[in-house]
Design a protein around this nucleic acid. Structure first.
Lengths: 263, 263
DNA sequence: GCCGTTTGCTAACGGCGTTCACTCAAGCGT
DNA sequence: ACGCTTGAGTGAACGCCGTTAGCAAACGGC
């Protein structure tokens, strides 16, 4: 009675029996086809029947691998967070490790680039949560989501430790905000780093702003009036960096932005 | 062969024949039931069949009023923008007209309050656009969306004219951004106000940030780590206002925020 | 070779959007 | 007051969809 697990990528590379390997392969195929449908037809265009059809099997058969379509979407979302985390991490490590400022620029730009080149995926990950309308179990997605976020947390932590970022003092933050911030710091596992409240505030403020520009671009909310949101993103990035006391590093353009997504 | 128009609220109060009146009423009923379903079951839970069932008629009958479910959702979205615009406008006019700073605070808070009290509606309006996955005609929603935005445009315009907001100089903006900004200003109809590029930049920057916090709250992206996003919103608002050289006006709390939605 | 487990199938239920052909009543001109 | 036009609404149907139940075949350990 091994219930369909729908775990994301098996980071635990244990020895697998032949049976388990083909099972794994089938699940991977399911998710990869589902993802293609997601990209091509939007999230509403992902259907078990269509996937099964394309695989040469019938819909009920998929229930051996996935407990339902909601779970499948959650599983895909989890994979996507992993992929985005990898992309950002790759960009991060593509520049000298000591240059924290550059790493931050590169990481944030990698985030945006991935987002705008994968709008359907981004929408599923960052758009209105299924939580609002569904009772699906989102924990796997949240898990990998945290892994994704940790990339940025680490960078910010580094930045704060090595540079003298102007942080708001504890007194001027206000009790409610302080409470929420410490709750945030705890949940997210930053308490290990003994991150001061002011730093957490700075971090969330930055994240909110980045999230804002990128969402606005991907969801095309200024799409009716603006062609290319990149200048806005860069402007926001600059504003943010200088606010942090970090010097803004413009894109060195050759032709067009070439922050490609490896993998 | 009068094709279903699906216009939003008839702002043109022309004399209507009896027939037209009942027709109007039916359409209103359709939309109101649809909206309830939207709120109760999410956007995926809105179906013509269910609406028809509740109205005591059959699904095909609805096609006399609405050309399809996508169009219905677009129509609802348009109405929602109107409603949100009204709510914001009401808040705006509830305080002394001369006090532009207060009006800005009140209007922005009204926006947030409406958003978090109407998460399903907000998601439809500001979440991933159906444009990404659908070919539906969104113009009605865009239309009223513009009306909604104009409330803030007007306020910002006022603010800029009467106060000495520190605006970025034209030279330091960069050609691409300048181009996009002027495109934005033109499309949105701000060129009539002869709004300088720096002001437009400031405006979009502010809008991006507000959009960011509110989306983050409604889409519950920090929901796993944070209970109440209000302190974050207020912090962002404060940061934004002071950046504009406007003094931040804290909420006068009695018990809880009472920025209610009239009508 | 046997037997439990895994896999996939068919059939079926109920829900969905949408189209088509049709009925029926309201409204209109005369 | 009559007939005709037009619009509202229906029922049947098509083709999707998710999901469940029961069943047959393949597989794998013994």
């Amino acid at each position: 009675m091994t219930k369909p697990p729908v775990t994301s990528e098996p980071r635990s590379e244990a020895v697998l029996s032949r049976r388990d390997r083909v099972r794994e392969a089938t699940l991977t195929e399911i998710k990869s086809i589902a993802r293609r449908h997601l990209v091509e037809h939007g999230v509403a265009g992902v259907s078990l029947r269509a996937i099964a059809r394309e695989m040469g099997m019938t819909a009920p058969g998929l229930y051996r691998y996935v407990p339902g379509i909601d779970a499948l979407l959650v599983a895909i979302t989890a994979d996507l967070f992993d992929e985005l985390a990898d992309t950002v991490a790759a960009a991060d490590t593509s520049v000298p490790a000591e240059d924290t400022e550059l790493r931050l620029h590169v990481a944030l730009r990698a985030l945006r680039t991935w987002a705008i080149t994968h709008p359907a995926e981004f929408s599923v990950m960052f758009g209105p949560s299924r939580r609002l309308e569904l009772d699906a179990d989102l924990t796997p997605a949240l898990e990998t989501g945290r892994r994704f976020a940790s990339t940025f947390f680490a960078l910010c932590d580094r930045l704060i430790k090595e540079k003298d970022i102007p942080l708001p003092a504890d007194e001027e933050i206000g009790p409610e905000l302080t409470a929420e911030l410490s709750s945030f710091v705890d949940t997210v596992g930053l308490s290990a780093h003994a991150m001061p409240t002011g730093a957490a505030l700075m971090l969330t403020r930055c994240w909110i702003r980045i999230y804002g520009v990128v969402c606005m671009e991907v969801f095309q909310h200024l799409g009716f009036a603006v062609n290319d949101m990149e200048p806005f993103f860069e402007s926001e990035l600059q504003n943010l960096m200088t606010g942090l006391g970090v010097r803004y590093l413009p894109i060195e353009r050759l032709g067009k932005p070439v922050t490609d997504t490896p993998g």
